[in-house]
Design a binder for these strands. Structure first.
Lengths: 316, 316
DNA sequence: GCCGCTTACGTCAGCCGTAACGATG
DNA sequence: CATCGTTACGGCTGACGTAAGCGGC
């Protein structure tokens, strides 16, 4: 059994059982993949894939178990490689994180600048992604960790550690009627205007949908939804509706022509959190980044959380 | 990186950093091992072993992490191979268990005969071992599981599932004074005679030493200690002392010339238990064997225990 | 001087890529 | 007929074993 055989089999599985695509993805020839998979099946004595004619159309029962185990093995191999470079040059390497636009634009800049000053040899990558795919990117190893804002479903291989609470604000153009209210803002006030907010805020069971449901107010018409706070602000400025977004994304100086009304009392706070794979090996500078981002995320704290069972909830 | 390189490195580590011994153990040449380890170190960019002159004298910090990960990988590879044969011929293969002499001789025979009748294609191996090394044999993969009688220290990679409670009896030759007592046996009565019992019973903090300590009675002189119940009975018959052993190991018919006095009231019961690695893949017939041995050890029960965290105590 | 690791070298298995073939829908 | 996987074959890398060299204890 060779590691490449496992790699080939797993890649074929990931490419929806298309051997040619797997060959492309691994920059090798298609017959090589076919052959190695056959050899592996021969060595194990069981077929891993179900073939109809010449095509693979499904994974066999043993194949499922083997592929899962192979994925674990390949992940550990990745870890070994990281360990090597970690000790060889502990302040050089890459750090890839997935996060939402708002985090990348408003929460991360000062953290990133402090980090690059301290670790100039580290190639930092920030992959913007919608909250829904953050978990997936960490699961599949596309990112070392993710910084999320809405908690998705929990997963046995992931740990989510809360960092800080954040609140929402309503943003309107100068002179908007909502600015002339002589009382605190209510949800019903919002219902009179089209809403411009995050795409992900409109999914089931978010802080926003829960608040409207509990107040018995219909969710206002949504004029525009975007993952990008700057886009939201742009269209609010154009008068398309009122914006509802993270308070930290409003900057009185930069956002001339807009006014911000706190909506902290209308929606429960959400928690920004980091998402990690339990079995990933983090480089030393990755821990340094996390500590810069949220002081409570010391190496010790993170490692404890990683090795703890899932039900010990570190999320909040 | 090749799997063999990992195998080589791990084996050198296991052979106390002796490359030649590792080569012998793996049935290959010594230069091959040296070379592959060098290549691995080169690829990772860090030395795994500390060399004084030409000899390896220690493991480096990265080496330690790499070796631990490599051991995990190799275990998973073993699991994949087992999965293959499991599905290919699910009633053929080998099953290796480590257990104490008493279990093998008195508790297992009926289980084993039922098992071999049901799975004639399975090569069953029973490795007798002292209670202390049972855990180690499971840890190192020499046995698929162990059946133990005295609980050793717990280990993060092991799970111990209790099977049944067992009690001790005092065994004496016909006509022995202890048979003429007109009251129930006390610990002090035993103190008058040399004791013949299990080696492992004399370690610290066993049911036997705890009982004597709590009663304030000195442990009697030990004439002979053996892991083997038949040896104990033989020497009791010769009059060297009184035997103290598992009640189940006394058979009134076979053991002519010996008498058995229950000591159930003198010592707390002990629990027979099985020991499993959390990350080992058990063949289907292994679960069948466990179910025959202790009905409560269904596949579902065992798997639940394996995946549960350590602190959920299944041991008792 | 012996043990143990390294270097050097010849051999051969086996992986990979190209090209031609065949099956499926 | 187009797509996709298999078979066939040649080249070449690289793993292994033997034999010789050399540093430590």
């Amino acid at each position: 059994m060779k590691l490449q055989q496992l790699r080939y089999a797993v890649e074929v599985y990931r490419q929806n059982l298309n051997v040619s695509d797997a060959a492309d993805a691994l920059f090798t020839s298609q017959p090589g993949i076919s052959k190695q998979i056959r050899l592996l099946e021969e060595e194990l004595g069981v077929p891993l894939f179900v073939r109809h004619g010449k095509r693979m159309v499904a994974v066999t029962a043993p194949g499922k178990v083997v592929l899962e185990t192979a994925e674990r093995i390949l992940r550990e191999v990745q870890n070994i490689k990281k360990i090597g470079t970690e000790f060889a040059e502990h302040d050089r390497g890459t750090l890839t994180m997935a996060t939402t636009h708002t985090q990348a634009r408003y929460a991360l800049p000062q953290v990133v600048s402090a980090f690059v000053a301290q670790y100039p040899g580290v190639q930092l990558s920030i992959l913007p992604a919608s909250p829904l795919v953050l978990d997936k990117m960490v699961l599949e190893g596309e990112a070392d960790f993710a910084i999320g804002t809405e908690l998705g479903p929990s997963h046995a291989d992931l740990r989510k550690l809360s960092c800080y609470a954040w609140n929402r604000s309503v943003v309107v153009p100068d002179g908007h009627p909502l600015l002339s209210l002589n009382r605190t803002l209510q949800l019903a006030d919002l219902a009179a205007y089209p809403l411009i907010t995050y795409e992900s805020a409109l999914l089931d069971n978010t802080a926003i949908t829960r608040a409207f449901a509990q107040a018995g107010v219909d969710i206002p018409q949504v004029a525009l939804a975007s993952a990008d706070t700057d886009i939201i602000k742009t269209y609010v400025k154009l008068g398309l509706g009122v914006g509802l977004m993270a308070s930290m994304a409003f900057d009185a100086e930069a956002d001339k022509g807009l006014q911000c009304i706190s909506a902290e009392h209308l929606f429960e706070p959400s928690f920004a959190h980091i998402v990690l794979r339990t079995d990933s090996y983090l480089r030393g500078y990755a821990y340094a980044f996390l500590a810069l981002f949220a002081p409570k995320l010391t190496r010790e704290y993170v490692e404890t959380a990683l090795y703890a069972p899932l039900d010990e909830d570190f999320s909040i």
